[in-house]
Computed example of a mutant assay.
Amino acid sequence: MTEDSFNMSMRKFLKLVGVTSQQQIEEAVRDARAAGTLPDGPLRAEVTLTIEGLDLSHRIDGDISLPDDA
């Protein structure tokens, strides 16, 4: 595998992670809003990336601000 194909493979995976994660978050926010259970303020989020065979576990956390109309 060339360096270019390796980078393209990583980018494809990360795009899939980003797109599907955003869709899931948006759906959960819509559902919570409809149910009246959407919390005030930013949402605390955490993601853990693990890769089998590399002994990699990388944790990322942060806040997601809600839109004003939420």
Rank of each mutant, 00 (worst) to 15 (best):
K15G: 05
K15C: 07
K15Y: 09
L16P: 00
L16M: 07
L16G: 03
V17A: 11
V17M: 12
G18A: 13
V19Y: 01
V19R: 08
T20Q: 14
T20P: 02
T20C: 08
T20R: 13
S21G: 14
S21L: 13
S21T: 15
Q22H: 07
Q22W: 06
Q22I: 06
Q22K: 13
Q23E: 12
I25K: 01
I25H: 02
I25T: 08
I25C: 02
I25D: 00
I25A: 08
E26K: 10
E26F: 05
E26N: 11
A28I: 06
A28K: 12
V29T: 03
R30A: 10
R30P: 01
R30Y: 07
D31H: 00
D31P: 00
D31A: 09
D31F: 00
D31R: 03
A32I: 03
A32S: 11
A32N: 03
A32E: 02
A32K: 04
R33L: 04
R33P: 00
R33T: 04
R33M: 02
A34Y: 02
A34K: 10
A34W: 01
A34D: 11
A35H: 00
A35R: 03
A35C: 02
G36V: 03
G36T: 01
G36H: 02
T37C: 01
L38R: 06
L38Q: 05
L38T: 04
L38G: 04
P39F: 09
P39L: 10
D40K: 15
D40C: 03
D40P: 04
G41Q: 03
G41E: 03
P42G: 09
P42L: 07
P42A: 15
P42E: 10
P42W: 07
L43P: 02
L43Q: 06
L43Y: 06
L43M: 11
R44H: 11
R44M: 06
A45S: 08
A45Y: 09
A45H: 06
A45T: 14
A45G: 06
E46N: 08
V47L: 13
V47D: 09
V47S: 13
V47C: 13
T48H: 04
T48Y: 05
T48E: 13
T50G: 11
T50P: 02
T50E: 13
I51V: 13
I51E: 14
I51C: 08
E52N: 11
E52S: 15
G53R: 07
G53Y: 06
G53C: 07
G53S: 08
L54A: 08
L54H: 10
L54F: 11
D55T: 11
D55E: 15
D55V: 13
D55W: 11
D55Q: 14
D55I: 10
D55A: 15
L56C: 10
S57M: 09
S57H: 09
S57I: 08
S57Q: 14
S57V: 13
H58A: 14
H58L: 15
R59M: 15
R59Y: 04
R59W: 05
R59I: 15
I60R: 12
I60H: 13
D61I: 05
D61A: 15
D61V: 09
D61G: 12
G62D: 12
G62Y: 10
G62Q: 11
G62F: 13
G62S: 14
G62N: 14
D63R: 08
D63A: 11
I64L: 15
S65L: 10
L66T: 04
L66A: 07
L66R: 07
L66F: 05
P67F: 05
P67Q: 05
P67C: 01
P67W: 06
